[in-house]
Simulated assay, not measured.
Amino acid sequence: MKRTATTKRLVPYITSRKGEYGVLDSELTLDLDTFGRTRLAYHNETPDDRGPRGELWGRCAQTLDASGRPTGKPQWRLVHPTRQREAMSQLRCQIGFCPAETSGGYLFLAGAAEPHRPGEPVRTAQPPVCLAHARPSVEQCKHLREKGHVAFLARETTVWGVVGTRYRFTQSGLEPLPGQDDEPLPYEHPQLGWFLASQLVRELRDYDVVNLDDLVPAA
């Protein structure tokens, strides 16, 4: 089924909305972790600002309706860090934030051109999709629709690291390191404390590459 002008376009739960602004560099400072290592911090930091490995997460405002759902004009190319982290850590659907587990595992979608070697672990910052939202995800995403997709049904997946922005300390204060390309950073990386995380990355290990039509027959 092709999307027509009358088809209502889904807005993924993880998509940023107009008015949801991120952290300012002036909010950042430096402190020491429990091992005495220098790391990024917030001036008025709370426990919610850090992940399970001590990584600092980018703050971002949220525009929510009365039921707590995201509202406002979508910013299609931007991912909201808090909602992406919620969906990925809880393995919930990135479209509707509904349960994503199937009888065979969790379904993850990726572009056909993205690197993938059969049998090797797959790392992704895209949370899973439930079966109900799998086909609309492909039909309504221009990248997946025009350039093809790969569907992974994962029986085992673990949190691996983050995508983030590395900071450095200069004479004028903290500033992002130029020339970054959003490469996923493993939790074991020695410079993790200097990164401001924006997306959680999972590694898929025990998985099958599947045909979406076998899981969700076309209408």
Results as ranks from 00 to 15, higher is better:
117 R>C: 08
190 P>T: 10
100 A>N: 05
14 I>S: 02
20 E>H: 00
178 P>V: 11
153 L>F: 08
150 V>Q: 15
26 S>T: 13
180 Q>M: 13
193 G>I: 03
72 G>W: 00
1 M>P: 08
59 R>E: 02
16 S>W: 00
167 Y>Q: 07
75 Q>N: 15
89 S>D: 04
50 R>E: 05
140 Q>R: 08
83 R>N: 00
165 T>M: 09
144 L>N: 05
207 Y>P: 03
79 V>C: 08
209 V>G: 09
173 G>H: 03
197 A>D: 01
32 L>D: 06
166 R>T: 12
113 A>H: 10
115 P>L: 07
87 A>N: 03
189 H>A: 11
78 L>I: 10
210 V>G: 02
2 K>S: 06
114 E>T: 13
68 G>K: 03
60 C>H: 03
26 S>A: 15
96 G>T: 04
166 R>S: 13
182 D>W: 13
18 K>F: 02
116 H>F: 14
187 Y>L: 11
135 R>Y: 05
164 G>F: 01
171 Q>A: 15
45 E>H: 12
138 V>L: 09
185 L>Y: 02
185 L>G: 02
218 A>T: 11
82 T>E: 10
210 V>Y: 03
138 V>Q: 09
4 T>R: 07
185 L>N: 00
151 A>H: 05
57 W>F: 14
172 S>V: 13
129 V>Q: 02
199 Q>P: 06
160 W>V: 08
194 W>C: 03
181 D>C: 06
182 D>C: 11
198 S>Q: 14
80 H>P: 10
218 A>G: 06
110 A>R: 13
49 D>C: 08
74 P>E: 00
40 L>Y: 04
67 S>G: 11
165 T>P: 02
67 S>T: 14
132 A>C: 07
37 R>H: 13
33 D>L: 10
20 E>F: 00
140 Q>F: 04
143 H>E: 15
61 A>C: 11
22 G>P: 02
200 L>S: 05
131 L>C: 09
170 T>C: 15
105 G>N: 02
48 D>A: 15
195 F>S: 03
161 G>L: 00
6 T>N: 14
81 P>Y: 07
189 H>Y: 05
108 F>H: 14
103 S>Y: 08
94 Q>G: 15
90 Q>D: 15
12 P>I: 00
169 F>Y: 06
71 T>F: 00
150 V>Y: 06
76 W>S: 12
130 C>I: 06
208 D>H: 09
184 P>K: 12
